[in-house]
Design a protein around this nucleic acid. Sequence first.
DNA 1: ATGAAAGCGCTAACAT
DNA 2: ATGTTAGCGCTTTCAT
Lengths: 396, 396
Amino acid sequence: MKCCLAARKTRVVYATLRHADAVMKTSYPLPRIPVCKRFHLLEIKGDISVPDIRDVAQRAGCSIATVSRALNSPRQVRPQTLARVQAAVAELKFRPNAIGRQLRGERTGLIGVMLPTLGNPVFADCIEGIEAALGGTGQRLVLVTTRYDPERERNAIETLLQQRVDGLLLTLADAESNPLLDDLAAERVPFQLLYNDAQIRPAVSVDNRLAAADGVKMLIDAGHRDIAMISGALHASDRAKRRYLGYCDAMTMAGLSPRPALEIDFNAGARAAHVREALAQRTDAAWCPTALFCSNDLLALGVMRALRESGLRIPDDMSILGFDGLAFGELLSPTLATVSQPSVDIGRHAALRLLDQIAGRTDGGRALILPHAVRMGGTVKCRARAGAGVTPDYVA
Amino acid sequence: MKCCLAARKTRVVYATLRHADAVMKTSYPLPRIPVCKRFHLLEIKGDISVPDIRDVAQRAGCSIATVSRALNSPRQVRPQTLARVQAAVAELKFRPNAIGRQLRGERTGLIGVMLPTLGNPVFADCIEGIEAALGGTGQRLVLVTTRYDPERERNAIETLLQQRVDGLLLTLADAESNPLLDDLAAERVPFQLLYNDAQIRPAVSVDNRLAAADGVKMLIDAGHRDIAMISGALHASDRAKRRYLGYCDAMTMAGLSPRPALEIDFNAGARAAHVREALAQRTDAAWCPTALFCSNDLLALGVMRALRESGLRIPDDMSILGFDGLAFGELLSPTLATVSQPSVDIGRHAALRLLDQIAGRTDGGRALILPHAVRMGGTVKCRARAGAGVTPDYVA
DNA sequence: ATGAAAGCGCTAACAT
DNA sequence: ATGTTAGCGCTTTCAT
């Protein structure tokens, strides 16, 4: 084995020396410098290249099997041997190669996370929750963002599966009609959706429809009658769709007429312009809302800015309700009224469920609906009317 | 080869069937179900387990080398053969195993990203920039957060290196005294720092000291004389330290006395309480600032909230200057004055530099300093005094 | 308690 | 243009 080892080393060393021809012939085949030997390669004195388990074994005077055991189940090896191995590991600065382990083992310890963007703090918070749950488990996160682009979603999932992640945590633009999920289910890939509330899927979310309805009901209770909803492209987001349904529910329930949603292309940069355009539509019509339900907080912020630029005051000329519960909303003045969802918990629970699923303890389950909360705020004006009865208390 | 293939399949199938003893004996060794065979395992009809390159080869009637070539350099194979391989790939839903490739190849296509937290939008923005730069290159992100904890930093780097990432993008709590960086450099691991401006390192950042000085100078120009700086634990963050130096520079330059920084433990949850405590210190002293320079925007927001809870008005009773340039700051009223740094660009440039470095086109270089900008805002009151001369225009 | 060896999926050198 | 084969680093089975 010793000579074999030496040969291996020799090859690698010469490989670094610009593939010196004479030496290349001496061994077969001569691969390109492999990933595991990338660092240190040009130091020709003493120990060369990144040490592997065989180097450790040689140094400790035992077999690679023993080294492996010393690393993974130390109690299986004699204390004396263990000490020698540990010494060798330290001296060589041996760093176990996760790739070798992953190729051999039944798990990679990788979790694929796919989100639309990190520009929305909702998703950043969610990752914090995921990391918190993964905490000590030693799982690593592979992160991809998709910008709500179905094409990118498909590619990203494919990439993550090629990387053999143990499971996926994902937010799709639209989970309802998405064949990708059937594929994942058919392939038995453990996954949990985040935010998408497709009931039949393993998912962690709020009940978007109900939450939106609760929010709009709050507006109605505050005396508003003409309420419009504004959202990103409805067809592209199942959450927007559900929230729109919730808006309709609340309006209908109160005997009011829901209006078509004002759609704003989220991905287009010129947000303020689009908002003004949508508002122009509104102005043209005979109908004039006193309150705007925005399908998410980021949109609400953009809308508020656009309204102010148009000279409208909030909430006097227009009340605003968002959705998400961004912490920043509370720092605004007036504070942003919003329907808040527990982003950190969504991430945390999804990660925990995924771990259970990966471990085979569950099959992933169905949708887990977490509680939402309507957060009153200064962006909503109470058009106090005696007729409406008791004003309910909303959760802060 | 055919029988060999069959044997392999058989083994795997039976392995899923709870390690049926009689069959276990027939082949050697019988590994645990490897990672690549995790999905589909329990379907006993038809094709079983995840296909590998040999399955494709068999189906296409060629060798695995040909399949590999068809996948990686299609023009090297005869169109007819290529078609057969592609058909086989499609029929079997073959998904190349990145782990095998990584083990064999000289690169993993993995980029390790280590950041303190995603709770601060600065870092989320930075990731957006990184992703934008990585765009089409097919590199994947492995993400770890450290909560400014040196212990976690060490572990995270070790984990990422075990995963054989091609390079690292990282923000350290304190890069200056950090031996980890020497280790990385010694091991020839390509890396770029984000935000840390340790000049001798490969890093992308603003000049924190100068930027802070510019910000404080703005305060001085606005007529403030008693200016305090408030920050997270100074010893834990090189940026906070440099920004404090910048504060001192500007004060001294104007003939004013810099004060010791009011330190607030960032990681401790009870932020408002800590702020009040720090302010109490201030009140006890004879000295009373009219302006507060906060070492980052998130801190500024917390401070503002605490001040308001204490009944102080901003900017009338106290002016506030932040650092970071969070987009949210512009939505507040009053808008947050801040020293903005180009987070997205920091991420983008660092990623680009890292790619060059990985490709061997550069050695990583030294610090790249990007331009900062002082953003005036409503949180700063102009104590207009005729004596100060011309009021400069600050970049919006 | 330890060692020998097979093989995870893939790529590339060499041979044909 | 295609096939054969070694081997990347590791874990685990079986044998000792």
